[in-house]
Design a protein around this nucleic acid. Structure first.
Lengths: 102, 102
DNA sequence: CAATGTTATCGTGTATCTACGATGAACGAT
DNA sequence: ATCGTTCATCGTAGATACACGATAACATTG
């Protein structure tokens, strides 16, 4: 038997498209781009220092950090009462690969 | 007179941060990434063909095309009743520069 | 244990995004 | 002029994003 004839096959989005969209989404806010640049320059940074650099409330910065962390772009390491954030080089490399492939 | 002593100077986001965020935002949806890939592969494409390839309604696709166009990533050229879309290589290059600079 | 300092989360208000059907605008063909 | 085709826009519903103050969670210090 031949497979059923679909009049129009429109497959869902590919994994690569979803992945790139997810990463782009994480960078889709000036504050988050700024945090990434900050971490690139300083290597690592405690949350409080990031808050002092951005023109945003602490709660808002924490939210942006959460978005970047969920996307795997940064990692947070607890250090006593503080949390030290740093970039994930692999994730950043992946972003560059995917964007470069466009 | 010395300038007034601000307790904390937290400048607004830089132009580069805003620009990258704006471009990343345009790519922050699987359908839009997919359209970019489609145009990269085919060189150019009329709207109707894009609609046929995506699992979305025509109105939704048109909206995504508008987002990409507003970000300068694609251009649309009217050709009779059709509109032919193509990538803007300069915008794409700019995205790669900005991402590469992270 | 109490007080302090640091960060995350909650709750909330506003705005933007995403999807769609319906409608409108523009063009070519009859 | 009237179709049919193609695409954009409108209107709208539901979801998500963004910003903030308030509060909770947790570790350190006294």
């Amino acid at each position: 038997m031949s497979p059923p004839r679909s009049p129009q096959v429109r497959p869902p989005h590919s994994a690569a498209d979803v992945e790139l969209a997810r990463l782009a989404r994480a960078l889709a806010h000036p504050a988050r781009v700024r945090i990434v640049r900050l971490l690139a320059r300083r290597g690592e940074c405690v949350c409080g220092q990031i808050v002092l650099d951005l023109p945003l409330a602490q709660a808002t910065v924490s939210q942006h950090l959460k978005v970047l962390k969920a996307a795997g772009i940064i990692h947070g390491q607890v250090d006593g009462p503080r949390v030290c954030y740093c970039l994930d080089p692999k994730a950043l490399k992946r972003v560059k690969e995917l964007i470069g492939g466009l």
